[in-house]
């Protein structure tokens, strides 16, 4: 029985690569997702994922099927979209989610238009939903590097990011780090989404980033536990999702995200923090 949980990974190198890359990505993307939700910026994941589309399409039109250039194109466009949205809302006071909602259809329409110019030479579905089982050695290295960099940077800016999220006005009065931290954080989000796009698919990575983060909210009221919980949950979903896709012969990206979705629904129902089926313990005034 327990053999079945390891056997595919022991037997096939491609499964091992997908597992290591996926778990690394999960453990850096999910904590970023927790901060996205706390900043009320959950929509930015979607906006960036769609922003990646025109960038990749443009790179394909100009340079053909070269993976580093496709990633670079996606990175530039995704980052550009996220920073444009942040800049507009910082300068004009437009709510960040409104500014993202404005950018997201622009990117999607632009991307689809560009892809239609490329006359279907690039598979739209593959780009959006990826294939976890196509993680080659280069992709794995890139995923590990991005995950390590993200976790290190997140640890470095943790306190400032926390304060910028909770009380940006206060941070502004004691330090000039606010805009820098905001920009760094957005860059990390985009980097994680882009590096995941050709392994797990642009739209699937958003699920891996946000679903465990939302689910964790039902289990703890303490930020460090939330971050850890979201990362563990995301990693578990990657592992079980890959197994499910292996044994049931299903595409892996949707398997992973649907498992995360199941964890989310379970948390909504049974989580101790405002879960639907939990009645809070009666208070004991002391």
């Amino acid at each position: 029985m327990f053999d079945a949980l390891w056997q595919p990974f022991a037997e096939f190198a491609f499964m091992r690569r997908a597992l290591f890359g996926g778990i690394a990505l999960a453990s850096s993307a999910a904590p970023l997702g927790v901060f996205l939700i706390l900043r009320r910026m959950s929509l930015i994941g979607d906006a960036v994922a769609h922003g990646i589309l025109p960038g990749t399409a443009l790179a394909f039109l100009c340079f053909g099927l070269s993976l580093p250039l496709l990633v670079l194109g996606g990175l530039t466009a995704g980052l550009g979209m996220a920073l444009l949205a942040a800049w507009v809302s910082r300068r004009t006071g437009l709510r960040e989610e409104a500014s993202l909602a404005a950018i997201y259809p622009i990117s999607l329409a632009g991307g689809v238009l560009l892809l239609s110019l490329a006359e279907q030479k690039i598979d739209l579905l593959h780009l959006l939903f990826g294939s976890a089982l196509a993680v080659d050695a280069h992709t794995l290295t890139a995923m590990l590097a991005v995950a390590g960099l993200s976790l290190a940077l997140l640890a470095l800016i943790y306190r400032a990011l926390l304060l910028d999220t909770l009380d940006p006005l206060f941070l502004r009065s004691v330090s000039r780090l606010g805009p820098l931290v905001h920009g760094l954080f957005l860059s990390l989000v985009v980097l994680n989404l882009v590096i995941g796009f050709h392994a797990i698919g642009a739209l699937m990575v958003v699920g891996l980033m946000l679903l465990p983060a939302v689910a964790a909210r039902f289990w703890s009221r303490h930020l460090p536990s939330l971050l850890l919980l979201a990362a563990l949950l995301a990693a578990a979903c990657v592992w079980l999702g890959l197994l499910l896709s292996y044994y049931a012969n299903l595409p892996s990206g949707p398997c992973i995200v649907l498992l995360a979705g199941a964890a989310y629904l379970f948390s909504v129902l049974f989580g101790p923090v405002h879960g639907l089926c939990r009645t809070p313990a009666l208070p004991h005034p002391t």
Partner: peptide, 28 residues
């Protein structure tokens, strides 16, 4: 200088303990 702003707009749902909020005053 230090400013005590009004409370509206403060996210009361933020997963933080009172001690950590107060401790942020020691930032500098």
């Amino acid at each position: 200088s230090a400013l005590l702003p009004q409370q509206q707009g403060f996210d009361r749902q933020f997963p933080l303990r009172l001690r950590e909020l107060v401790a942020s005053g020691l930032w500098r």
